[in-house]
Write a protein that binds this DNA or RNA. Structure first.
Length: 220
DNA sequence: AGCACA
């Protein structure tokens, strides 16, 4: 979803998993791939893991999409250590590229399903912010309160999770969840920032069955 | 078949 027109990174399948040699094959393979692909551009890294799920596959990260495109065209089906390589673009940007482009989002180290969901939602959110920013969003005229009121929250929505989402909007101060009631208060440092978060996040799906319903908190 | 990055 984050790459419509190619990718700096190529995803390689059908690599020979057992090259006859002394060392660990995936480490050797990394070097072989590096050498081969370097003929077609600057290779920033080769990722080639040994776990079962990743066997026979690798990622070759080029500096530019053009280089990757070129390499893919010229090496598609290339016979390499007895097997023909299958090349395609990686589905996602590689971390090094994302960092270079200032678009990297910290990846959780332990991959519990909750963390995964959180990470995924952050990505979706990033996209929606990008799209909405074209619409001109707010101009301060409707910053009626610096505290937002969320209701109809599911029990599975945690305070930390809300913090992650609303924290992506500048000016975020804190979130207070009243989980028994399924409501929360999200506070920003000023009205305008709160308004932007409201506009950007109202209706945002936090789970398949729950979307954010946001209004301004009543003034106390 | 299988899309990772510490």
């Amino acid at each position: 979803m984050d790459t419509e027109d190619g990718n700096e990174t190529l995803y390689i399948q059908n690599l020979n998993e057992k090259i006859k040699s002394q060392g660990k094959t995936h480490i050797e393979m990394k070097g072989f791939l590096y050498q081969l692909f370097s003929h077609y551009g600057t290779v920033l890294d080769v990722i080639n893991q040994s776990q079962y799920r990743m066997r026979g596959q690798a990622f070759v990260i080029f500096d530019t999409k053009q280089e990757a495109e070129n390499a893919m065209r010229l090496l598609q089906g290339y016979y390499f250590y007895g097997k023909s390589m299958k090349l395609s673009y990686a589905q996602h940007k590689s971390d090094i590229i994302a960092k270079r482009d200032g678009v990297y989002i910290e990846r959780p180290s332990s991959y519990s399903t909750e963390k995964r969901l959180e990470f995924f939602n952050r990505l979706k959110l990033k996209n929606s912010i990008k799209h909405r920013s074209d619409l001109g969003t707010t101009n301060g005229t409707f910053g009626s309160n610096n505290i937002l009121f969320l209701e109809r929250l599911e029990g599975s929505v945690s305070e930390a999770f809300l913090g992650n989402i609303f924290g992506l909007y500048p000016g975020f101060k804190e979130v207070r969840l009243v989980s028994e009631k399924g409501v929360a208060f999200v506070e920003y440092y000023d009205n305008e920032e709160a308004a932007k978060a409201l506009i950007g996040l109202n209706g945002f799906k936090v789970s398949p069955t729950c979307q954010l319903f946001i209004t301004y908190a009543k003034r106390g």
